[in-house]
Design a protein around this nucleic acid. Structure first.
Length: 269
DNA sequence: ATGGCAAGCTAAGCTTGA
């Protein structure tokens, strides 16, 4: 069972790339972020044509998440509200940043964490509050659903190994202590960073700035993650970043990240 | 500190991203 996450930076701009990638990498589940399109205009048909089910939650211009799966998923839910209730969630489901569903014995939660602009800005506070809400949400879900895969664009480098030049970005957005503490509070609910189960060195990134030759010089950040609940982490057999699509013309600025879960095959589903 | 690039919206330049 392979589960991929990829911030595509507009599904309409990346449609051909995403289809080509899925054909070359026929993962069981692909989670997308920054689809940047309302549901009515989402180009579902090309994905249906190559054998994927589509579950989408988008809005005009910004944000937007989607899950494609080869086999149908159940229990699809959008946003925090189904678990936390409208009163607790307030305005936080207006931006489309969370979609979840169940496949086999695994619940997948696909998230696009707010960017945060710069430390101490209004958007930064929104990001920290969004992460706090995510923590409350996962605290409830992890008890009901022990095999959890929380994946997506977290917009946080968990530690300095995940930044090409950590000194230059100390205390900056995506690396600030408060962001890392918010992520750590989530980890402490009972998650492992799947990539770090297999690779401990620095120098592995999932996002490179479009500007200033970020990719050719490998000036990147690792901000796209799979956080697996402990029981699921035990079953993970690999986690890799596929830099190939980032090297092609008109790329997303993010690369796909793929985790493989063992002890499960289609006959189990 | 600034600018560099990409996408959406909309019709030249602003907003957002990270």
């Amino acid at each position: 069972m392979k589960i991929a996450t990829w911030n595509v930076n507009s599904i309409r701009s990346r449609l051909d790339r995403a289809i080509a990638w899925l054909q070359a990498n026929p993962v069981d589940v692909l989670c997308l972020q920054e689809t940047k399109v309302i549901d009515r205009d989402f180009p579902q048909q090309p994905f249906l044509d190559i054998g994927y089910n589509c579950y989408i939650s988008g809005q005009k211009s910004y944000n937007g998440v989607a899950i494609f799966s080869r086999l149908p998923m159940t229990d699809i839910n959008i946003g925090f509200t189904p678990i936390l209730g409208a009163e607790t969630v307030g305005e936080f489901d207006e931006q489309k940043r969370l979609i979840t569903g169940i496949i086999g014995d695994i619940q997948i939660i696909n998230i696009y964490v707010p960017n945060g602009a710069e430390v101490d800005s209004e958007k930064y506070n929104y990001k920290l509050n969004w992460l706090k809400l995510l923590q409350e949400y996962l605290k409830i879900i992890i008890d009901k659903s022990p095999n959890l895969c929380v994946c997506g664009d977290f917009n946080i480098a968990p530690d300095d190994r995940d930044i090409y030049n950590p000194k230059a970005f100390k205390n900056q957005i995506m690396a600030s202590p408060a962001e890392r503490e918010a992520l750590q509070a989530i980890v402490e609910l009972g998650f492992n960073d799947a990539f770090r189960k297999f690779t401990l060195e620095s120098g592995y990134f999932s996002w490179w700035d479009y500007r200033s030759g970020g990719f050719p010089q490998n000036r990147g950040w690792r901000i796209d993650h799979h956080y697996l609940s402990l029981s699921l982490s035990d079953r993970a057999t690999s986690c890799i970043i596929d830099k190939t699509p980032r090297s092609l013309p008109k790329p997303s600025d993010h690369a796909p990240v793929i985790v493989e879960i063992g002890n499960m095959s289609y006959k189990d589903l």
